[in-house]
């Protein structure tokens, strides 16, 4: 009786293990080439994000610079008006 029980348990375990291996082997996972393509795409996206950030900073600097130049030109026009007034006195 004891021998019979042991045999049943051993066979049960063997089936369980074999079943797990079967499941693992039959699941549809991507191959190495596909994983490599995914990684390449990830790298490309990260690089693009970096470039976009840099360009946004550059654009913002340029906009600030233009605003400053416009202010200087405006000030220069105001100065001209003041000088004309002083010359007229």
């Amino acid at each position: 009786m004891l021998k019979c029980t042991r045999t049943v348990i051993t066979i049960g375990m063997a089936f369980l293990f074999a079943g797990s291996l079967f499941l693992y082997g039959c699941s549809s996972s991507p191959d190495e080439q596909q994983l490599k393509a995914l990684q390449t795409l990830k790298d490309e996206t990260a690089q693009l994000e970096k470039e976009v950030k840099e360009k946004e900073v550059k654009k913002s600097d340029l906009e600030k610079n233009i605003a400053e130049k416009n202010a200087k030109i405006k000030k220069c026009a105001e100065d001209q008006a003041i000088v004309k007034q002083r010359l007229a006195k």
């Binding site: 797990s20 693992y24 549809s28 991507p30």
Partner: peptide, 17 residues
């Protein structure tokens, strides 16, 4: 049995990929 199960769970499926 457990290690085989864990290994299966960690892998990406083709659909996820």
């Amino acid at each position: 049995t457990l290690s085989v199960g864990v290994a299966t769970a960690q892998e990406m499926t083709k659909e996820q990929w």
